[in-house]
Design a protein around this nucleic acid. Structure first.
Length: 502
RNA sequence: GGCCCCAUCGUCUAACGGUUAGGACAUCAGAUUUUCAAUCUGGUAAUCAGGGUUCGAUUCCCUGUGGGGUCACCA
């Protein structure tokens, strides 16, 4: 274990408990200490706080690690002999906590408590009712040693409490909020372990932060009340407390702590929706931090470069999905087409539009025809700048995979056109398209635009054509779609549109 | 209820005590366009309230109000 350090190299940690989905707020409590460590050429430690055996599950830990990898946040060391590092797990460190517990018990800094739960609960209710801090009143504080021994031998249910010093002010300088001070009388003798081998959060966290040589504890605001407790423990164990920085919370649009009711809370949902890791990192970083300039698009590397704890916001921030969408769209537009296509394909497969045949070959489910990745690339190209998240690709591209389009004939109508006008317009398009020898976007544009100009209103020709080939109120341009569709299919769709009007 | 934290446009935020209170997203116009996007131009929009301190408060102090966190044999 790293007990003493020769040089004060910066060491931060991310200490999640694997008791649920990787929450978006948790993502930020991982990101900030990571950025801070990397900025200062320090180490970033991952420590799984799984002392609650009931609630901790391997699957949650797996999701956690997967999420971190997706975000491109890597940690620097682990308990194993070599990388890739397994994270530290508190469930594997019981002996470390036991060592400290025994010592504190011996020195009288901690003591056994045999009070029944119900009694404690009643006491708490009473204290709250008379407007006082609901803290343990210290009934077992000074039990004679023999009594404790006897009770223990009898096997009476017990816990281990910390002997909090009376009426002492404990203060620390929060790197984000400045001085925070509390009176120990509002803390009470809190429970630090169920038994010698089952340390509880405040104890295990305090022990590990010093044992692992953490210099800067950067965590959520919800831990502010725990900080004095942990500092007291660290003091009692004879160590020096690290620096603390408490991040503001992330709120939902209802200004309450981000919860499932107000939006998606787990990273996994955002991954599935098709948000890119770059957008997610950029967005989350700017929730409560800014570089002090007007630059807003930041890569991880740039974030590391410009990160500073002083620029972290004090107040909670509302998770604004609109801005995330905008940012994600920006990153999608910047993604090379080939890569973007690779990212979109799984969504098309999942939607049941296409099936993978071999590495770059697919088959269209409805028609059975073969399709190459390059064909898909052409489709994706038409919609790259409209995409806000990858999952939207399915409703945008479905027109290319359907045998027949399903739309109301009214959609074919542009402005004041009557059914007959539309038929005439479509027949004209059909005629022109049939006559094109070399069927490509350029030639389509050349011929069709020329014709469209004639009427003085391009919509007369182009709108019905666009709806005929896309079946949609809004889509990419008719010539672009036709070029991808091919001559035969384009003509067939125009024919079908005309039939609708008959 | 006790303790602790916070407070600038709808949202994210900028402003060593002196700015026409700036930017971004969203929104609304306009340009472009067959549509929807994208892009460009422009507009609307904020210092929670009341007291101090000061020549001068968004900024410092106090009080109030509002919001949040936390008070587990969870983390």
């Amino acid at each position: 274990m790293i007990a003493k350090r020769e040089e004060k190299k910066i060491r931060t940690r991310f200490a999640p408990s694997p008791t649920g989905h990787l929450h978006i707020g948790t993502v930020r409590t991982a990101l900030f200490p990571y950025l801070f460590a990397k900025k200062n050429k320090g180490a970033f430690i991952l420590r799984i706080e799984d002392t609650d055996l009931e609630r901790s599950k391997k699957e949650w830990e797996d999701e956690l690690l997967k999420g971190l990898r997706w975000l491109n946040i890597s940690w620097d060391e682990g308990p194993g002999p070599e990388g890739p590092y397994a994270p530290y797990r508190q469930s594997e460190r019981a002996s470390v906590y036991r060592k400290h517990l025994e010592k504190m018990l011996e020195e009288g800094k901690a003591y056994y408590c045999f009070c029944p739960k119900e009694e404690i609960e009643a006491e708490k209710q009473y204290l709250m009712s008379i407007g006082e801090s609901p803290v343990y009143q210290g009934k077992c504080r000074d039990l004679p040693k023999e009594t404790v021994k006897k009770y223990l031998e009898e096997g009476r249910p017990s816990v281990i409490r910390f002997r909090t010093p009376d009426n002492q002010k404990i203060a620390f300088n929060d790197l984000i909020r400045g001085k925070i001070e509390v009176d120990t009388s509002t803390l009470g003798d809190f429970v630090i372990a169920k038994d010698l081998d089952s340390g509880l959060f405040n104890l295990t966290c305090a022990v590990d932060d010093v044992e692992m040589g953490i210099t800067h504890v950067i965590r959520g605001e919800d831990h502010i009340p725990n900080t004095p407790k942990q500092m007291l423990l660290i003091q009692a164990m004879g160590f020096e407390a690290p620096e603390y920085a408490h991040l503001p919370l992330i709120l939902g649009t209802d200004k309450k702590k981000l919860s499932k009711r107000t939006g998606k809370t787990s990273l996994i949902d955002y991954i599935e929706d098709g948000y890119l890791p770059e957008a997610m990192v950029n967005f989350v970083a700017f929730l409560g931090w800014n570089p002090g300039t007007e630059k807003e698009i930041y890569s991880m590397e740039e974030l590391i470069n410009d990160f500073s704890i002083e620029k972290i916001q004090k107040s909670a921030a509302v998770f604004n999905i609109d801005k995330l969408d905008w940012m994600n769209g920006y990153y999608i537009r910047k993604t090379p087409l080939y890569e973007l296509t690779q990212m979109c394909v799984p969504y098309l497969v999942k939607a049941g539009f296409i099936k993978e045949i071999s590495l770059e070959k697919y088959s269209v489910v409805e028609t059975g025809e073969g399709i190459h990745i390059e064909d898909i690339e052409k489709m994706v190209a038409l919609y790259q700048e409209r995409l806000k998240k990858l999952s939207e690709i399915t409703e945008l591209l479905d027109l290319f995979f359907k045998k027949e389009l399903d739309y109301p004939k009214e959609l074919l109508k542009w402005k004041e056109m009557g059914d007959e006008d539309i038929v005439i317009s479509l027949k004209k398009s059909s005629e022109i398209i049939s006559s094109i020898e070399k069927f490509n976007k350029e030639n389509l544009e050349k011929e069709l635009l020329e014709e469209a100009e004639k009427s003085g209103n391009r919509g007369n020709l182009l709108w019905p054509l666009r709806v005929a080939v896309s079946g949609k109120k809004s889509s990419a341009g008719p010539m672009e779609i036709a070029a991808v569709l091919g001559k035969e299919k384009t003509l067939k769709r125009i024919e079908e549109a005309i039939n609708k009007l008959k």
